[in-house]
């Protein structure tokens, strides 16, 4: 069974969103997603200051046998990226919800977070 923390929000594309303070959210991929991808070897993230719209591709992730696009769950501005992933992308496999986070986004409209899936909905989505 995958780890699906109750306090987070989720997308169909297997990204998670954690609400921080000041309208900033932390985005990464779920435990289920990292398990599906397998050993992650490379992550391409946007520059700080990049504006992304909901469902825009904000980066790519390469595991041993697959490259996938990363989709932004929300509209906003990238205010931080996890530079530790550059030298150690396996942090995503080890701690997807902690050290393996990808970007922090200052969200344009906080209310849109509520449109994302709850933990219960996401568990159903992945059949768990």
């Amino acid at each position: 069974m995958s780890n699906i923390p109750d306090e987070l929000r989720y997308t169909e594309e297997h990204e998670y969103v954690r609400s921080e303070s000041d309208g900033v959210v932390t985005i990464g991929i779920t435990d289920y997603a990292q398990g599906e991808l397998g050993d992650i070897v490379y992550v391409d993230l946007p520059d700080v200051g990049t504006e992304v719209a909901k469902m825009d591709v904000f980066g790519t992730i390469e595991a041993v046998k697959a490259v996938s696009e990363l989709f932004s769950p929300l509209t906003g501005e990238v205010v931080d990226i996890n530079t530790a992933l550059d030298g150690n992308p396996s942090l995503i496999n080890q701690h997807p919800y902690e050290d393996g986070w990808m970007i922090k986004l200052r969200v344009q409209n906080l209310a849109t977070i509520e449109e994302l899936m709850s933990a219960t909905d996401y568990a159903q989505h992945i059949g768990e």
Partner: peptide, 15 residues
């Protein structure tokens, strides 16, 4: 651990 993209030839290991 997985090999990094720099780890060598595709046929050097099975994933």
């Amino acid at each position: 651990r997985a090999p990094r993209p720099s780890a060598g030839a595709c046929f050097a290991l099975s994933a």
